[in-house]
Design a protein around this nucleic acid. Sequence first.
DNA 1: CGAAGGCTTGAGACCGCTCAAGACCCGTGG
DNA 2: CCACGGGTCTTGAGCGGTCTCAAGCCTTCG
Lengths: 223, 223
Amino acid sequence: MTIDKDVQKKIAAHPLFEGVARSQLNWLLNVGQAQSLPKQAYLYHRGDQSGFLYVLLTGHIKLSVPAERGSEKVLEFLGPGDVFGESALLPGTTLIADAQALQTCELLVIAAADVMTVVTRAPFLAQKMLANLSKRVQALFRDMESVSLLSAAQRVAEYLLRQPREGNQAHLPYHKRAIASKLGLQPETFSRSLQQLAADGLISVRGAKVVIHDADKLQAMLA
Amino acid sequence: MTIDKDVQKKIAAHPLFEGVARSQLNWLLNVGQAQSLPKQAYLYHRGDQSGFLYVLLTGHIKLSVPAERGSEKVLEFLGPGDVFGESALLPGTTLIADAQALQTCELLVIAAADVMTVVTRAPFLAQKMLANLSKRVQALFRDMESVSLLSAAQRVAEYLLRQPREGNQAHLPYHKRAIASKLGLQPETFSRSLQQLAADGLISVRGAKVVIHDADKLQAMLA
DNA sequence: CGAAGGCTTGAGACCGCTCAAGACCCGTGG
DNA sequence: CCACGGGTCTTGAGCGGTCTCAAGCCTTCG
């Protein structure tokens, strides 16, 4: 199994592999496979046995678990550079979540059996993986903390403050329903919290555009 | 900085390093340091800059964040073999939780600057670290799922089913207050949930001893 | 025996959830 | 260009599970 020439180039040019020796990179391209995933498609489902470790090169992916009545709980949004499918590293376990592409995605796929080899032959990638998994643990810690300690409005405020802003305007990157779920809220509660913050003069909402009028007060809400 | 002879032996004999070549092990013992942590002591605090990665050899550690009124939110209980202090791998970040020893603990300490070297020289450990971090991500996923989707009694039932049993008796390994916090509950609610399960005839509680009368019905509660 | 800490029990309040309906947004096709 | 339709989001009303506050109990340890 080899990878298309142009896809190889795309991978080699990827920021994730900046400063990596060409020899290591070439070797990695032989071991790994590239995979493209169209918008809305599922990469895997909860309960599958994967056997593969994934590195997300482009696009965004949503990890979630099904809940009652066709609903779902969003566990994590993944972006470029994130490493996932970690069950592959744990013998005897199955995947714990669904992985769905939010946009068209490019992935690097590594067979579980090759992971040990990758660690020895491409330690740079091993270290990136360690750093990335650490980042994810930290993010999950933050989430647990928010869900347990903050009110609905506080969680929304915290989320808004974490979004990238152009000027004082932020853009909600996913459906409100999905963001609400990630924050551990019902869509109705998320909506009401946004209205609340708007009524207090801290923000203005129009669709997915949110204008942050007073970031300091938003921040102060979290105390 | 070297390590006591007997501590070296203890580390070498540790299950975590089973099947590791003596040369790698010796090298590791030069890079890493052993640290002992008495019961109740804090290894670090939220906000500290650590610069160290820790491998827990013996004992249990509690990761938590302070909450209002001298209370705290327990994020994770760690046991032997767990790797933590992961902020060390992420430049520019500080530790996100407090780490407190629940019993006397033995740790292997690795300076962040040496991690890359460890990955190249002791890939076995790098792989264990990857696997362990993956396990932690999975555990956090499960926790998020429970907190978001399950009622208080369901969370307690799930927790009880996960505890090791001798016969049909389980033992709550930490203070009920701490377990409650880990489950995202107030101590009062945890207590009431246990009473509820007892009233339904599924368990009996006496102090930290819990007898599971009907594991199947407990399991069925989670649907 | 007394004190301290952890746990339990009770009563009441509140936040977020549920259910239901209506409004908005946007792509599609006439 | 406009009307339509599906999906998404908002708004309203009422309910209920969990939290809060407060007191009492039990165990442990000095």
